[in-house]
Amino acid sequence: MKIRLSRENVRGEFVKKVEMISGEDLLKCYQCGKCSAGCPAAFEMDILPSHVIRLAQMGQEEELSKVNSYWICLSCQTCTVRCPRGVDIAKIMEALRLVTLRQKNQNKVEATALPTELLAELPQIAIVSNLRKMSG
């Protein structure tokens, strides 16, 4: 992974957008890795939650757009309650989802594309929560 660091990235629009949506200060994170250590979904993520935060700090929008980590995130808040710096990582994951979902036609899951048998099997609570996280 090639990372280009510049003032434009680190102080750029992307960082501002993520901080605005999440309400979090990205630079609070000192990369201890505790969030990644306890994340129950890390086994399926391209990069660990702490790496996601690091890329976000450096304004690496392009690199972040290629990883699945925040789509795999379960919003379980384990990282959030454990971070020694009080970073609400789950909110940053949500902000990264929203940066994509707030653009046109970027839904990860389309309600109309879900098979009828699956919809019949699932409780409403699963369908509603999934669509709230995976579509805009």
């Binding site: 979904a41 795999i72 990860k108 929560s129 999934n130």
Partner: peptide
Amino acid sequence: KTECCGAYQTVNRKDVVVTC
């Protein structure tokens, strides 16, 4: 007992839920 079950991934990534 406080570990997440995989939550809403059960819709489009049930493999994640199965592992959890």
